[in-house]
Nucleic acid binder design. Structure first.
Length: 1065
RNA sequence: GGGCGAUUAGCUCAGUGGUAGAGCACUUCGUUGACAUCGAAGGGGUCACAAGUUCGAACCUUGUAUCGCCCA
């Protein structure tokens, strides 16, 4: 059948993809040989809200290349696709959707209704990205498409078949029972927009213009001290009496929650006042709170005044200091980042806090003394109980309550601005002299000195939520944590001992560095969309189970409500019973909505009820959900059916290769390692291939605001999926930066066309595909055919070597160079004289070899360019997708195993190299002396060895055609004024005295001689160095010798030609 | 400040000890029967700098400079 003029990617792609899918080509185990080893890739699950961007396209192309390659090799392959429920991102998208449609807000419709909406949305548009992957030719087993929320309560019937939810819950319970998960009041990153905690990794620190204010904290009771400053030599530079300590801060509004002022223990300037009390210079004058001056290693003597205010509830460094020093941590803000409005009036709260601040006893004892907590509290609970009490104290002055923490888009001054203004007004700012130049009416400039508050304008590192883009507030809240330091060991060992390989190797270093310094992982999120934490709270009872206590609630962690009740009943004893109240869960949420974010300790019904004779204890479930990465951390086992003992789990786990972006090494890769090892005690994969962000041609990040975003589907539309895929492979150098240049894609689109044209030549011109053919190379006698068969074998080795070492670029470049430069530019051209000749046997042989070489090229190119290759496979022989038979399609063709050692014929290779050298040398010489391209010229041979003569005899027609030689005449000497053509073992000349420019030809030869001289110099230098022969490997020395001989021969010929030319001018 | 990396042709990048490569761009020529989404021929690099190891360094070591990315 005659092939069309060009490959129509747009129509072919969907047709081919449908044929593959219908024939079941992608399903797990398709095309596997009996007893095959398995090869499994887990897709990094894209967000279910996502649309395909160029990074996905790149990432999934690499996965598809490996899967197609392994599938053709007969491995039992599984490429597992699916999506991540992406808690924050999805909740955000659906909320935006609701707002757009004028529906009720999330808060108004409530949890259950909202979750229904999310599932609706997921059902309607959740599959977008998976369908987009198909446009790339992704051959994942779509019948197994997984979802990290499948099987969760509330999932619609058609979503409930998976059991990912069960896996997540089971892991949580197991880890809880092993003591790897705990709940505690810790300082976490709080996102005031989404009103949830987020993990360290979800925070982006961005340098932002900020201010550093300097304030005076007066010593209590008007005390004074002598403040002395010295320079490096110990000379006193300043000595004065002060009644204050100077503090620098970028966050004045947090002064309200200060628990102490800290100085370095070795700081002599403040040694005399350590232990004294200072007054926080904010809030109503009559209720000023006193806090102690303490010592801690944290303050930097050389930074600011050397003294630091300690606000444990709103700063990570201060938190550590406060923990070390038992300093109370007063939370000042609510879930929206506004100043708290709950609790007792300021006067009362400040008085209590002041008393606490003055106490020299440990915090718990102090609180017992004030009757705030019970001295009977169990020792293990004391810290929690004390912290919970402290958290009820609202130290925000009445007039600031409900205001935002800083101005951030508000028109009115907010807490920060008001606090600063009040301190300045009271004269407690540190003052400096500022000199400004003013012009009077006559234009005369005068310098004016003003005493002004000392405020430095300086960039500060400000934390932002990676999703919400709002300023993150460190907030002291109750959260769930994974005790990462307990599970990190095996994850580190697995990479250290080589069980898991991370590529490029630098990724391993980064991995070690992070895991060796890992922090507890905050896994609870105050969201609705996600896996709800399987812990139920109940009231604590006394040891004799007779009465309720005010201690922190008891946790019952279980996979189901029934289990939780069972656990609770065991705890409460036979005379009581537990029941579940969803009402109380809502109470807890409502409490949080009002700004109470610390816990559920005093949720109304959280106590026992006497019903008849039996005590009843109300349980309610923690309303929080798990961090999305907690569930995606279980992606490998979760998608394979764990915790059931599934066949897939046995076959495909541990999986083989993970291909993902460097940016989620910590988020995902490290966590999968830790969790799989913690849960099933096996590594999740053998090899991790990390790649960078795909950037634009100039190396800039693609972003909507820059307007340089390239939509991969636009590329597919314009250039075809194969061109995009080939570009991806060619860009994928290990550790390389990924700059996507449209020019390059265009170039690979041209390559696709080239492949098509070469096939079309085989089909339409030489009719190569009509004969039967198989995987074995045809019997060939012609050196040309024997040579190309060997070249194909070399290519097979190169492609396999590239893919085996994840050097996709090497594989791609080998294919490109072979097909364009060797197959098309040489072999295809060289077949032409045969088909224009009369030798039928030669024609038959060449048809067969041509067809075989095309077949093999299609096979070897298929993993990278599945569409054009499958289409050619189909069109050139009526095989393939048109049959509907998977076993006949290229996608399931047998990957070759022949080697260069099997198929390379050294004689044929030498012959073809000689022929090519002669042609190239003639062409080069002709072009340089401006012989018209079309002109047929005579050639003279002055010297030729036996091998050369036989090469010539066998290839005369070919050489004459491509070098445009009309005749070859032997001569003793080259005619005067001819152009020299050296070749290995031969010397030719073109007698063109009448048309050439002698000076030009001399210049050409001189240039060649110059190059040769340089090369010869290097070679001789090496060979004359006795140490070289002694130390270098024998083959390197031999190669250098051979090289030298060849160059010397060439030089001699050119010198001779040059001398001859010199005779005539 | 800590960690990781980069610096090679005009541009984008390969190149893991044997003397420099690709694509694009550029110059000249060419509508020769697969292909102008093409063909032929060419120009172009002190491999950031410095010192060291080595018979031999773009490659290994150390330092310097500049630029990225990640974490504080």
């Amino acid at each position: 059948m005659a092939m069309d003029k060009t490959f129509d990617a747009a129509t072919a792609e969907s047709r081919l993809f449908t044929a593959w899918e219908q024939a079941g080509c992608f399903t797990a185990g398709a095309n596997a040989k009996p007893e095959a080893s398995s090869y499994c890739i887990m897709i990094p699950p894209p967000n279910v809200t996502g649309v395909l961007h160029i990074g996905h396209a790149f990432n999934n192309t690499l996965q598809d290349i490996l899967i197609r390659w392994k599938r053709m090799q007969g491995f039992d392959t599984l490429w597992q696709p699916g999506c991540d429920h992406a808690g924050i991102a999805t909740q955000m998208v659906v909320e935006r959707e609701l707002a757009k449609n004028g529906e009720q807000t999330r808060a108004k419709m409530g949890r259950e209704k909202f979750l229904e909406k999310v599932w609706d949305w997921k059902g309607q548009s959740g599959g977008t990205i998976i369908n987009q992957l198909k446009r790339l030719g992704a051959s994942a087993d779509f019948s197994r498409t997984a979802f990290t929320m499948s099987g969760a309560p509330g999932a619609p019937a058609d979503e409930a078949d998976g059991n990912f939810h069960d896996a997540v819950i089971k892991v949580f319970v197991e880890m809880y029972n092993k003591g790897l998960i705990y709940r505690g009041k810790r300082l976490v990153n709080w996102d005031p927009h989404f009103e949830t905690a987020i993990s360290d990794l979800e925070v982006e620190n961005i340098e932002t213009p900020g201010h550093m204010w300097h304030f005076k904290y007066p010593l209590a009771g008007g005390a004074t001290y002598t403040y002395v400053e010295k320079d490096e030599d110990g000379t006193i530079t300043l000595e004065e009496t002060r009644d204050y300590i100077s503090i620098a801060t970028t966050r004045p509004e947090t002064m309200l929650g200060d628990g102490a002022v800290a100085v370095h223990p070795s700081d002599e300037r403040y040694a005399s006042i350590v232990g004294q009390l200072v007054e926080i210079p904010v809030g109503p004058k009559e209720h000023r709170r006193l806090i102690p001056i303490i010592t801690d290693e944290y303050p930097d003597k050389d930074f600011g005044s050397g003294a630091v205010k300690i606000t444990g509830a709103h700063d990570f460094n201060d938190y550590q200091v406060a923990k070390r020093g038992g300093i109370p941590m007063y939370r000042l803000m609510d879930t929206k980042g506004a100043m708290r409005a709950d609790g007792a009036p300021y006067a009362e709260a400040a008085a209590l806090a002041s008393k606490i601040g003055k106490s020299t006893k440990p915090l718990f004892e102090t609180l017992v003394e004030f009757g705030a907590v019970s001295e009977n509290t169990e020792v293990s609970q004391r810290e929690t109980v004390a912290a919970n009490f402290i958290d009820t104290i609202n130290l925000v002055p009445d007039e600031l309550r409900g205001k935002n923490r800083f101005i951030d888009g508000h028109s009115e001054p907010q807490a920060r601005e008001i606090v600063v203004a009040e301190i300045n007004a009271e004269g407690l700012a540190v003052m400096v002299t500022e000199v400004t130049t003013v012009k009077d009416d006559d234009g005369n400039e005068t310098e004016v000195s003003n005493i002004v508050p000392y405020v430095e304008n300086k960039p500060i590192m400000q934390p932002f939520g990676d999703r919400s883009k709002v300023v993150i507030e460190p907030m002291l809240t109750d959260q769930w944590f994974v005790e990462t330091d307990k599970i990190v060991g095996p994850a580190l060992d697995a990479v250290r001992n080589g069980d898991v390989k991370i590529l490029p190797e630098s990724g391993e270093k980064t991995y070690y560095h992070w895991l060796e310094n890992i922090e507890p992982w905050c896994i609870s999120r105050q969201l609705w969309w996600g896996h709800q934490i399987p812990v139920w709270f109940g009231p604590a009872v006394s040891a004799d189970k007779q009465h309720y206590t005010s201690e922190a609630p008891v946790q019952f962690c279980a996979t189901t409500e029934e289990e939780a009740i069972k656990l609770a009943n065991e705890y409460y004893g036979p005379e009581a019973e537990a029941y579940i109240s969803s009402y109380d869960q809502y109470q807890a949420e409502a409490k949080r909505a009002e700004g109470g974010i610390s816990g559920f300790d005093d949720v109304p019904n959280m106590e026992m009820h006497e019903v008849g004779k039996k005590k009843r204890y109300c349980l309610f479930r923690d309303p929080d959900v798990l961090d999305t990465w907690f569930s995606s951390g279980l992606w490998p086992i979760g998608t394979l059916g764990w915790p059931n003992e599934s066949e897939e789990m046995a076959k495909y786990f541990p999986t083989s290769t993970l291909i993902t972006g460097q940016d989620i090494l910590f988020f995902w890769v490290a966590r999968m390692m830790m969790m799989q090892l913690a849960v099933v005690d096996q590594v999740p994969f053998d090899t991790v291939y990390l790649h960078g962000l795909v950037r634009d041609a100039k190396g800039k990040k693609m972003s909507k605001s820059t307007g340089n975003v390239i939509d991969p589907l636009d590329i597919v539309d314009e250039y075809g999926a194969d061109a995009l895929r080939f570009s991806s492979a060619a860009m994928a150098a290990l550790g390389g930066v990924l700059k996507l240049d449209m020019k390059r894609i265009e170039g690979y689109r041209n390559f696709v066309t080239k492949i098509w044209q070469a096939s079309s030549y085989g089909d339409n011109v030489i009719d190569a595909f009509s004969a039967e053919r198989g995987a074995e190379p045809p019997k060939a006698t012609l050196p040309l055919n024997r040579w190309i068969i060997g070249e194909v074998a070399k290519l097979r080795e190169d492609v396999d070597a590239g893919l085996e070492s994840f050097r996709f670029n090497d594989a791609a470049n080998a294919l490109y160079a072979f097909f364009w430069n060797t197959f098309c530019a040489r072999y295809l051209e060289f077949t032409k004289p045969i088909f224009h000749g009369e030798d039928q046997a030669a024609k038959d042989e060449t048809q067969a070899v041509y067809a075989w070489a095309i077949d093999q090229s299609m096979i070897l190119m298929h993993p990278i360019m599945p569409f054009v290759t499958e289409e050619i496979w189909n069109v050139t022989d009526g095989r393939g997708v048109d049959t509907g038979d998977a076993s006949k399609m290229l996608i399931h063709a047998e990957w070759p195993t022949y080697t260069a050692a099997d198929l390379v014929d050294a004689d044929a290779e030498a012959e073809m190299n000689w022929v090519i050298a002669v042609i190239d040398n003639v062409r080069s010489a002709r072009a340089q002396v401006n012989v018209p391209a079309g002109a047929q010229v005579p050639m003279v041979v002055t010297q030729i060895d036996a091998a050369g003569q036989s090469y010539w005899d066998r290839n005369e027609a070919l050489i004459k055609r491509f070098a445009r030689i009309e005749s070859l005449t032997p001569a003793d000497e080259a005619p005067k004024g001819s152009i020299a053509i050296p070749a290995p073992g031969a010397a030719f000349a073109l007698p063109l005295a009448e048309i050439i420019d002698v000076a030009k030809e001399k210049a050409r030869l001189e240039k060649t001689l110059g190059k040769l001289a340089k090369e010869l110099g290097g070679l001789r230098g090496r060979l004359n160095n006795p140490k070289f022969a002694d130390s270098a490997p024998a083959e390197v020395v031999a190669e250098a010798r051979a090289n030298l001989a060849a160059r010397e021969e060439e030089e001699a010929k050119i010198k001779e030609a040059f001398d001859r030319l010199a005779e005539i001018g």
